Amino acid sequence: MMGLSVGGLFGLVVLVLDVWALISIIQSSAETVNKVLWVVLVLLLPVLGLIVWFLFGPKSR
């Protein structure tokens, strides 16, 4: 039963961080094409996409 709670909490944290990343990507000064590519990456690969975006993604304005 504890595993379900930890997994649910992890999923919620990933969801919140992904939403934060998407907002940051949209507000960034990057070109539209780059924004779309980053959004697709974060949506298709939530954990890996979030890590890659955090390390290499466009910065906010």
Rank of each mutant, 00 (worst) to 15 (best):
N34Q: 14
K35L: 03
V33S: 11
L4H: 05
V40S: 12
L4R: 09
G7E: 06
N34H: 05
G3V: 08
S5I: 14
L45A: 11
M1Q: 05
F54H: 13
A30F: 03
I26A: 15
G57S: 03
M2G: 08
L43P: 09
I23H: 10
L22Y: 07
F10H: 08
L12V: 00
G7M: 14
L9D: 04
V16W: 05
V13F: 03
F10P: 00
V14Q: 06
V52D: 01
V6A: 10
V19Y: 08
V39F: 06
L12G: 10
L45S: 08
L45K: 12
R61S: 15
A21S: 11
L37V: 12
V42I: 15
I51W: 06
L44N: 12
W38K: 00
V39H: 02
E31C: 02
L41Q: 05
N34A: 07
G49R: 03
W53P: 06
G8F: 05
F56S: 12
I51R: 01
M2V: 08
R61N: 14
L41Y: 06
G3D: 15
V47W: 04
G49S: 05
V40M: 13
S60P: 12
A21R: 02
F56W: 09
V36E: 05
L17Y: 03
L55N: 06
V36N: 04
V19W: 10
L50D: 02
S5Q: 13
V42P: 02
L9E: 01
S29K: 13
G7A: 14
L45H: 09
S24A: 05
L45Y: 04
L9N: 03
S24W: 05
F56Y: 11
P58C: 04
S29R: 15
I51L: 09
F10D: 03
V36M: 13
G57D: 04
L15N: 04
F56T: 07
W20S: 13
N34K: 11
E31T: 06
F10Y: 12
L44Q: 12
D18P: 09
W38P: 02
G7C: 07
F54L: 13
V52Y: 03
L44P: 00
W53A: 04
Q27I: 04
L41M: 10
I23G: 03
M2E: 15
W38M: 01
L22Q: 07
V16R: 07
S24R: 07
L48F: 13
G7K: 05
S5A: 14
K35M: 00
V6M: 09
W20Q: 14
W20N: 10
L50W: 12
L15V: 02
V14W: 02
T32E: 15
G3I: 02
L22M: 11
N34R: 11
L22H: 04
L55I: 14
V33K: 14
F56D: 06
W20H: 12
E31Q: 11
L17K: 09
G8V: 10
V19I: 15
V52C: 00
I23N: 07
M2W: 13
V47N: 01
L4T: 07
G57Q: 01
L15A: 12
G3A: 06
S60K: 06
